[in-house]
Amino acid sequence: MNPVLVAVLVLGGVGLVCAALLVVASKFMAVPVDERFPKIRECLPGANCGGCGYAGCDGYANALVDGTEEKINKCVAGGAAVVEALAKATGKEAEAIEAKVAYVHCKGDCEATQKKAEYNGTKTCKASKLLFGGEGACTFGCLGYGDCAAICPEHAINVINGVAHVNGARCIACGQCVGVCPQKIISLIPADAAVKVTCSNKDKGPAVMKVCKAGCIGCGLCMRNCPAEAVKVENNLATIDYSKCIGCGKCKEVCPKKCIL
């Protein structure tokens, strides 16, 4: 037989067998992709900020597709436009997003509180906390090295005078700062909140007075004066339940330490 013909036949045969194998494999082992997924994923902004509580936009889209997530208003970064697009894609009714912003519950700046030691280590909150809970006299307050500012995708956080401040206008409420803060003093509150607690110290009154001029002493005046029972003092610290708060501002007026703003 012609050697060229043999070569062509053998090579072609091997190719044909391989092709057949792949065709069969892709037919029998195909992974069905839910056609709703790309549609829903397209609506999301793709910033993968995690504000919805899922690992990135893919995670949220997946949860919407397989029905583990019902709400389509979880994407805080995308705003009303995304909710509308999702409503179209999923056939659900558009709901308003509750606008939120991150808030740092601490007003212990350089004037209000002092340092108990000089810290010279790695300049991150996480590292400085490892050493006796940070260099500040108050072990609950803002450490001021700006781990939150570093992780913020919108550059909405600035450390001013030793305390982190969130610029509400830029904040997209993704919640990354909430997770990264080693002191756990950042939380997401309604953007239109009338009152905020500006302290996170859970020590008793006298101990707080010693370390910070702006600290909550847990006197309970706010709790007693709140007409809606929205303010609670637990562990010597006032907290506000925003689902009950009517925004009257009574707590703000009566607070002797001005730590409700």
């Binding site: 090579l11 091997v14 190719g15 391989c18 092709a19 194998l21 792949l22 494999a25 892709s26 082992m29 195909a30 992974v31």
Partner: peptide, 18 residues
């Protein structure tokens, strides 16, 4: 080359599935 290429494709399909 041909066989290895087909083989890798095959492995990919199997991994994707299982």
């Amino acid at each position: 080359i041909l066989v290895i290429a087909a083989l890798v494709q095959f492995v990919e399909i199997v991994l994707k599935k299982y």
